[in-house]
Amino acid sequence: MASPESNRFDLHATYRQNLQNHEISPPLAAILALSELVVNSGAGTMFELVQELHDGAEVLKKSTTNPISLNAGCELFIAFVTLFPHESDSFAELKSELMRQGQKYAREAIAYRDKIAELMLGFIKDDSVILTHSYSRVVMKALLHAHKTKRISVYVTEARPRGLGIKTYEELTAAGIPCTVVLDSAVAYVMDKVDFVLVGSEAVVESGGLINAVGSSQIAVIAKAGNKPFYALAESYKFHRLFPLSQYDLPTHNPSILSFRPPQVTAAPSSPSGVSPDHQNEAINGTSSATPAAPSSRTMSADQIACNPDVDYTRPDLISLVFSDVGTLTPEAISQYLVAMFAG
């Protein structure tokens, strides 16, 4: 699991450990892990060090099925290291300076969500009805922050198959915000009642588009059709140099997603495999709906879920604004930051 040359330092374990902290998102965890890799590396030159960082990023990438946001963090850190002006006396000193920079950034970056919540506040008027999707830490921060000064109510989508909307529902209700879970398929039904849509993000890409939990794209299409603003919240470490033209250009896409399986005539509907039905029941209990457990044949099996994507890509023309710690940006403005960092 660890890269071969650093047998005393387990990059992946460090990454996992960083993720234990609820406040740390994958890109930050990756930056922290890579900055520790820097001091633990035996590299003697900048070239070797950067090579080692690239290998490390590869190791982290392989360890997860959805490397998009992690990748954004890795690329940011590596670009930073590559361009770091050498002024230190020795290479060891430079390495520890780089580590300090990485850790300092991670410390600062935790406050970015508060900054975004503050920026967002001006756009939330009293008595707003907000539609959000799945669970996002930065969206939670923004909603809880707005709740301190304004009356808001929130619709949240259930976000099948992981059901993270239920988590949003629980946290918002606990904070006293009126909240209702809606079916992913009821977004068009609810849209007319909503003032704007607010989603978090896995990454914001160069086109200005958004990569986020699956379902965001269709919500954006419906919001556009209903003439409702669609706002995305993204910390600047989620800016990712990627230019997907369609859903199938995402790094998470693989041939098994949306594949057609040969029909299995003997497939017994009475023996569903996998965890999905349990999960579904749990979700239903969570909403205290009194319906008896649905017949298990009507829920997706784990195999069927595996044919579905985790994240999708939302086109920039569907996004009204992106709120980030560097300011309130139009989707077009994202590329300016990415080009400044990675081009030239």
């Binding site: 930056i31 850190f77 930073f80 361009l83 920079q101 300092k104 950034y105 600062e108 080009v339």
Partner: peptide, 13 residues
């Protein structure tokens, strides 16, 4: 000072 947050804001030095 050259920090990661400045790097994000201002791009390459």
């Amino acid at each position: 000072t050259y920090t990661i947050s400045n790097f994000v804001l201002q791009g390459q030095p």
